[in-house]
Amino acid sequence: MRQVYSILVNNHAGVLSHVAGLFTRRGYNIESIAAGPTEDTTITRIVIVAIGEENELDQIAKQLRKLYDVREVEQISYNQAVTRELVLATIKAPITKRSEIIQLANAFGAQVINMTDDTVTLEASGNDHKVRTLLKAFEGYGISQMARTGMISLPYDGMPEDWEPIA
């Protein structure tokens, strides 16, 4: 299964490598990792998406909590948090296909940020599902270059405690 970890850490040198090292040491692949400052400048939020067995994923959370520089670890369920990812993608777009591609981009609310004779570069953001669908839609035209930020996430405020997560 895929698990989103939202990890609050002390903003110290080496913490990111410490956290990432914990995944490496147990042989887990990190699907994406995103780190950045929070409202408190002494704290950094790291969002990691990892794939593994359920008990392994819980064990990782426990191990993370044990790290001295880790303040908080949340294992986030999909419908309990807002998750977003930013994608930049350069699509092969010969003149004949260009308007079709721009139309498709509009449908996803993606923006054109660069254009050449045979390519269009798009910027899009969305949740996991939207990003996947979008990439699938453009796959047929050929994606020549792509960069993704990895998922970032914040829990929904005011979720009732008895709210059953769906996935």
Binding site: N55, D58, Q59, K62, Q63, R65, K66
Partner: peptide, 8 residues
């Protein structure tokens, strides 16, 4: 005392 030892 170590929660990570339990259930490992």
């Amino acid at each position: 005392i170590d929660p990570t030892a339990i259930g490992k």
